[in-house]
Each structure stands twice: as C-alpha cells, then as structure tokens.
Simulated assay, not measured.
Amino acid sequence: MGTWGAGNFDSDTAADHLAEWVDRLVGEVTGAMGGDPVELEPDEYWGVAVPCNLELLVMLGERGWVGVTLPAAGVIRGWQETFMAVWERSIDGLGPKPAYKAERRAVLNGTFERLAALAEEAAAG
C-alpha cells in the first residue's frame, strides 16, 4: 500500500475509497438513465439527484485525485441527450417562469458539458 503525500486522498487506500464513491455516483446516474424516463422529470427524485451527482463528479474530476475515473465523454453526452429530452418535454407542465427555465436549461447543459470536457481531458492523458 502506497502513500505519496500528506493529503487526505494521497494514498492507495484513500484512492480505493474514492473510487468506490465515484462508482456509486456513476452507477446511480447510469441506473437512472436506463430506468423509467418519468423518474428523470424535473420534479422527480432522479430529475434532481442526477444533476447533483454530475456536479459532484465534476468537482471530484477537477481535483485530479487518484481514484476518480469518469465515464467516457460519449457516455456523458448520451446521458445529456436522454436527460435533456425528458426535461424539455416535462418542464412546461410545472409552469416555470421563462427566465428560470432558460437559466436552469443552461445550468443543466453546462454541468453535462463540464463533465464531458473533464472526461475528454482524462482520456487524452
């Protein structure tokens, strides 16, 4: 077992722990994307939790810690397509104000894009 620094994530054990947590976040998103699309609607649990998981993955990916392995950018963009299609066809039923709708759309797309960019960076080495 190796330790390469004094930081909380600077050891093999910490990297293994982080990898398990990342796998859980990715697994939850993968499951939600493959499940009932109704569960991805903006007022449903996974419609809220998926973007939260993605944001956490972005934050972890930006840190560059060992143990953070992101899905391929193509997978993330597929998630984006699926998620945003559900969002677009269901958001109006909730009666959002136009400004909120535009801002939320930008935030959601931005989160997917930031994560895909990190995945591309990681793949490029």
Rank of each mutant, 00 (worst) to 15 (best):
G35D: 04
G27L: 07
P96I: 03
G31V: 09
E121H: 07
Q80N: 11
A119Y: 02
V75S: 02
A117S: 03
W4L: 06
G27S: 10
N8Q: 14
G5C: 11
G47W: 03
C52L: 14
V68P: 13
T69K: 15
T30D: 09
P96M: 00
F83P: 00
A106S: 07
R114H: 02
A6W: 11
Y100F: 13
A116M: 09
T82Q: 13
V48K: 13
A85H: 06
L70M: 14
I76W: 06
A14F: 11
D12M: 08
L118N: 01
L70C: 13
G27I: 14
E81D: 14
R114A: 10
P42K: 00
L70V: 14
M84P: 01
L108E: 00
V48L: 06
A124I: 02
D92E: 15
L18Y: 06
G7S: 13
A6G: 07
P96D: 00
A106E: 06
E41P: 01
A99Q: 11
L115V: 06
G93C: 05
F83W: 02
V86G: 02
M84F: 13
G5R: 12
G2K: 15
F112R: 03
A99S: 01
L94Q: 03
E88W: 15
G93D: 10
P37V: 03
R104S: 12
T13C: 05
N109P: 02
E41S: 09
C52A: 08
G110Y: 05
A72T: 05
F9M: 12
A117H: 10
A119K: 05
G27F: 04
A123G: 01
A124E: 15
T13A: 15
A15I: 02
V75C: 04
L115R: 08
R24E: 07
A102H: 01
P42R: 02
V107N: 02
P98T: 06
T69I: 15
L94P: 00
D10G: 05
Y45I: 14
P51I: 08
G61S: 04
I76N: 10
A19H: 12
A49D: 13
E81F: 00
G125M: 03
G61T: 06
E39S: 14
A6V: 15
A99N: 06
A122H: 09
V26W: 01
R63G: 15
C52T: 14
Y100M: 09
C52Q: 14
W21H: 13
V50H: 02
E55D: 13
